[in-house]
Simulated scan of single mutants.
Amino acid sequence: MKEDLIFERYSRQIFIEEIGVSGQRKIMDSKVLVVGAGGLGSPVLQYLAAAGIGKLAVVDFDRVELHNLNRQVIHSERQLYNGKVSSAADFIQQHNSTIDFRPIPVKIEAHNAEEILQPYDIIVDCCDNFKTRYLLNETCLKLNKPLVYGSIYGFEGQLAVFNYCGSKNLLDLFPTAPPPELVPNCDKNGVLGPLPGIIGSMMAMQVLKLAAGLPVDCNQLTLVDTLHWRFTKLSF
């Protein structure tokens, strides 16, 4: 892509004093892996692609279903029953064909986690189960990679940045996973569509700040209660 077109496309980011040309170059040189192409992954992928992340990948083995469409906004009726990463690739190709995007249609498990995460600078946890969440944390610790974490339920969400420049990680906040029978499930208990848009956008902002070399809050959990419109930060 020619430099004048790059500047035109990303000018509103470059005009920000804290970003500038050098920050945009860092964003375009960054390699980010998003784990999960669902409710949280949708806005994360949207805004990272729009911002020009140079190498962007998403891993998910699920398919698009009708009940996904109230919140998983990169998918459409046209993509029903297709793989979510294929649907994401179609969306990103139409929105920003200049980035290097890789769809990874597999399930992350202990035997493949290191291989999948290794090529990327920043890992984004948009998954929907604790087994994967703790595996991502363990693998990021082993590979010394920052992990941007988010979760949602009903009207509530939370996010944090783990393992960045020696900061704390998921185990410092939640040492053990809850029993499976106590874990809420969006498919059974519901989630209001804009909530993952809010949390996912906040996660994307943290990723872009990391990519651009800007400071981020570490050792803090942000809690968002959209029913009562409360935002709380907890240190850990």
Rank of each mutant, 00 (worst) to 15 (best):
P196I: 03
F231M: 14
F231G: 11
L214F: 01
V207T: 05
T176R: 11
Q158L: 02
G193I: 09
Y134L: 07
T176K: 09
D225C: 05
M205K: 12
G193L: 10
D172H: 04
T232D: 00
L135K: 13
Q158D: 10
L192V: 15
N144C: 12
K209Y: 06
P194I: 11
L159P: 03
P178M: 14
W229G: 03
V191S: 05
Q206S: 05
L147P: 12
L214Y: 01
P196E: 08
L173I: 13
D217T: 01
G157T: 11
V191Y: 04
G190Q: 07
S201Q: 13
C165Y: 04
L173H: 01
E138D: 15
N169R: 08
P180N: 10
Q206D: 07
D217P: 01
I199A: 07
T132K: 03
L223R: 02
M202S: 11
G166S: 06
T176N: 07
F231Q: 06
G200T: 09
L141W: 10
G190P: 00
G154K: 14
L135D: 13
L221P: 04
M202A: 10
V183K: 01
V191N: 07
P146D: 01
Y153V: 00
H228M: 10
E181N: 09
V207M: 02
L182R: 15
G157Q: 08
D172P: 06
L173T: 09
F162I: 02
K209P: 12
N144V: 11
D225T: 03
W229R: 03
L195W: 15
D172G: 10
L135P: 14
L136V: 14
A212L: 02
I199L: 14
T139P: 09
T139D: 06
Q220N: 05
L147T: 03
L136E: 13
P146E: 00
P175W: 09
G213I: 06
M203R: 13
D225V: 05
L210T: 05
N189G: 09
L135M: 12
L192E: 13
I198H: 09
S151T: 02
L170C: 03
T226M: 14
F162D: 10
C165L: 05
G213K: 00
D225I: 09
F155Q: 09
V183A: 02
V148K: 06
S167M: 06
V183Y: 00
Y149F: 11
L136I: 10
C186M: 13
N169I: 00
E156M: 09
P146N: 05
T139N: 04
K188F: 15
C186W: 10
P184Y: 01
E138G: 11
D217N: 10
V161L: 03
W229K: 02
I152W: 14
Y164E: 08
S201R: 15
P146G: 02
V216L: 01
A160I: 04
C218E: 02
G154L: 08
K145D: 07
L227T: 04
N219Q: 01
D225S: 03
G197Y: 13
G157S: 10
L182P: 00
D217E: 13
V161G: 03
N219P: 00
T132V: 05
L143T: 13
V224E: 08
M203F: 04
E156L: 06
V148G: 09
T226V: 07
L210V: 08
V191K: 03
